[in-house]
Write a protein that binds this DNA or RNA. Structure first.
Lengths: 248, 248
DNA sequence: ACAGCCGTTTGATCTGTGTCAATGCGTCAA
DNA sequence: TTGACGCATTGACACAGATCAAACGGCTGT
């Protein structure tokens, strides 16, 4: 394994040269909509890739902010911790999504990013991103869109946590995952959950037992098939119906 | 009242020339940290101010996105609506804060912004903001910080909605308001709520009756004094203690 | 292949918050 | 002043989801 000597990166992690121009995620990721030539400029900004093994932290709350990260492959969660030990999973991120934007405002990360499976990320040093987006309008604009999308996503989670009942939350969660897997070319109906029931519960504002019971009920009703972490969606319309209903 | 003919602005609304250089909020607002000369450039970008009367919309979900807005004076709420009628207040905004960033990602606003009292906002056309932030590094960087701060704030709300009990949520809400009033030079201990119990409840993921009961209990315990919308904080340390406790 | 352990499922009970309903208070208009 | 309306308070009761507890099942590493 090749281990170049880069200041920011622990030596225990493998790093390789990134190349957006050869990345099949580029239409999903930061260089969306750029010309070939512009993408090459981005290539030179995105210094290296880095492997992050399952359960390792990409960054921790309190660490200084230096870069944002694009997920090349794998699966992450982000969470926030309160002094008293309570924690809240704020999101699950997959290939092509951007991590670390929470750190821009105070120059310090405010949440933890943990790999839920062996993953690979591209490091985008933030000062260089700002420099380059002064040159490339499309990059500037797309980065703004990415941040705004994160805000809109957060509003969706607030809606979920603020107004929905347990089964609706889980339905929304499954539909969201399914949709994101679809747009990455994976099956919409069958996937493997990378997170535990406890992590799903934290994200959805529920206890793990409630998540488990809701899964069981969905299975009893023929909506899905659950085998531990393996999910097969049998009746996507039925799940959508759960969401549009008006119980509370 | 002066009524210039501006395409975007309803004629019923008064508009006046904005001037960041003469605005005492500029250290709180978008032009934070800019030189006098740079602020003048921002002045020329911020076309006009606009008055928004109580209960009027600044923008609605579904409307095209053209500009972000800085609150010059007044008080707003933002909320999201689901098809089935449920709605979630996603935030309350006061002077110096920025509205409208939800619209960047899809070029369409995804939430509603409503004035909770007669307010005045500065219109910042987004294409011009992007142009100018390519010239003024400090503006570019500060705008990124503002967006990031919004993401971090949203994470805080998720934590609140996901892990806290009713009284903790209300305590966090009061402390947050108090702190924001303080940094605007108002009293930390005494203020007027611009929103109804129902709106507070929507924001906190509670029913209005629960909000009302929590207020009453706080009053019984000598933490605050509530007179309808008028709040006086008597024991800020006691309120903070509610938050650090570990009940759930 | 095996043991050990972590994560999951399921059941029984408890409780915080929602729901429904009635009353009260303040403001505004006539 | 009076009435009316919108918002807030308070009480009684119901219920969704939390909590506590026990048993199960399938990875993971040796």
């Amino acid at each position: 394994m090749h281990k170049p000597n880069h200041p920011v990166i622990p030596l225990t992690l493998t790093t390789i040269k990134a190349a957006c121009s050869q990345c099949n995620l580029r239409e999903l990721c930061l260089p969306y909509g750029l010309s070939e030539q512009e993408i090459e400029q981005v290539d030179s900004m995105v210094g290296v890739r880095r492997r992050v093994k399952r359960s390792q932290h990409l960054y921790r709350a309190g660490e200084g902010f230096e870069a944002i990260y694009a997920i090349r492959s794998g699966f992450f969660k982000t969470d926030v911790l309160l002094e008293d030990g309570r924690n809240q999973v704020t999101g699950f991120q997959m290939a092509g999504e951007i991590l670390g934007m929470d750190g821009i405002s105070t120059e310090t990360h405010t949440c933890n990013a943990v790999a839920l499976e062996d993953s690979e990320i591209c490091i985008i040093p933030f000062p260089q991103l700002e420099n380059l987006s002064r040159e490339i309008h499309a990059l500037q604009h797309h980065f703004h869109k990415v941040m705004s999308r994160e805000i809109v996503r957060d509003h969706g989670v607030m809606m979920l946590l603020g107004t929905m009942r347990a089964e609706e939350r889980l339905a929304a969660f499954l539909l969201n995952l399914s949709q994101r897997f679809t747009s990455r070319g994976y099956s919409a109906a069958e996937f493997h959950l990378r997170m535990t029931r406890d992590e799903i519960g934290s994200y959805l504002g529920l206890k793990l037992e409630t998540v488990s019971r809701a899964f069981s009920r969905f299975q009893d009703e023929g909506l899905i098939n659950v085998q531990q972490k393996h999910i097969r969606i049998l009746d996507i319309a039925g799940i959508k119906k759960l969401l549009s209903r008006q119980p509370s």
